[in-house]
Simulated scan of single mutants.
Amino acid sequence: MKLYIKYMVSLRCKLMVKYELEKLDLAYTTVELGIVDLKKGITDELKQQLKLNLGVIGLELLDDEKSILVNKIKNVIIEMIHYSDEVLKVNYSDYISETLDYDYTYLSNLFSEVNGITIQHFIINHKIERVKELLLYDEMNLTEISHRLHYSSVAHLSNQFKKVTGQSPSFYKKIGKKRKSNLENL
């Protein structure tokens, strides 16, 4: 039996969900971002308790199909941007559509209806967050980052970064290093 969980976006979330499942003695085969595969069915009482426990840690057990599908879209995007080192050979819309086996127009309209933003804006916001992480890790230069995150050029990445954050990538990186230095000196 599959359960779908909203706001489950990190490895830490996966650990917390595993902990809650074990606490309720619910056997599972896998726990992935947004999805738990239980070994067997779950009673309504246990499902309600799990829902309450997840709510305490900021997660939400999803019940309706639209929310589940929107959550799947988010998880595909987060996985693609934050956790995959592969360079996509297709564009984002094709990848999302193929992965979820739905028409992209349907997915896009549903996503906008439920979240109030487009899939494209969601992707851009997550790409910029990933750029911030990579800049602060200081392991890649802007050219490598732009290639990894499928930007057509460094200029495109820089323009989008400035539009979203109000700062240039180099200025953001400089401020990040300064903050890190200040914290180390405490």
Rank of each mutant, 00 (worst) to 15 (best):
Y4D: 00
K6N: 13
M8E: 03
Y19E: 15
Y19S: 11
L21E: 01
E22C: 02
L24I: 02
L24Q: 09
L26Q: 02
A27M: 10
A27H: 11
A27S: 13
V31E: 11
I35C: 07
I35M: 08
I35K: 15
L38A: 04
K40T: 14
T43S: 15
D44N: 08
L46A: 09
K47H: 08
Q48S: 14
L54R: 01
I57S: 05
G58N: 09
G58C: 09
E60A: 03
L61Q: 05
D63M: 08
D63F: 15
K66V: 11
S67F: 11
L69A: 04
N71I: 05
N71E: 13
K72R: 15
I78D: 07
E79H: 13
M80W: 13
I81H: 08
H82R: 07
H82E: 08
H82G: 10
H82P: 07
H82N: 12
E86W: 10
V87P: 00
L88K: 00
K89F: 07
N91G: 12
S93T: 13
I96D: 06
I96P: 09
E98C: 00
T99P: 08
T99E: 09
L100T: 10
L100W: 06
D101G: 13
L107S: 05
L107G: 06
N109R: 13
F111R: 00
F111H: 01
N115H: 11
N115L: 14
G116M: 04
G116V: 04
I117N: 05
I117P: 00
I117Y: 07
I117Q: 06
H121S: 11
H121I: 01
I124L: 13
K127C: 01
K127W: 01
V131H: 08
E133V: 06
L134A: 10
L134V: 08
D138Y: 15
M140T: 03
N141I: 07
I145R: 09
H150M: 08
Y151L: 02
S152K: 14
V154H: 01
V154Q: 02
H156R: 14
L157R: 03
L157S: 01
N159C: 05
Q160H: 06
Q160Y: 02
T165C: 04
Q167R: 12
Q167S: 14
Q167D: 14
S168M: 04
S168I: 04
P169V: 10
P169C: 12
P169I: 09
P169Y: 13
S170F: 06
S170A: 02
Y172E: 08
K173F: 15
K177P: 01
R179K: 15
K180P: 07
K180A: 15
S181I: 04
E184L: 11
L186Y: 10
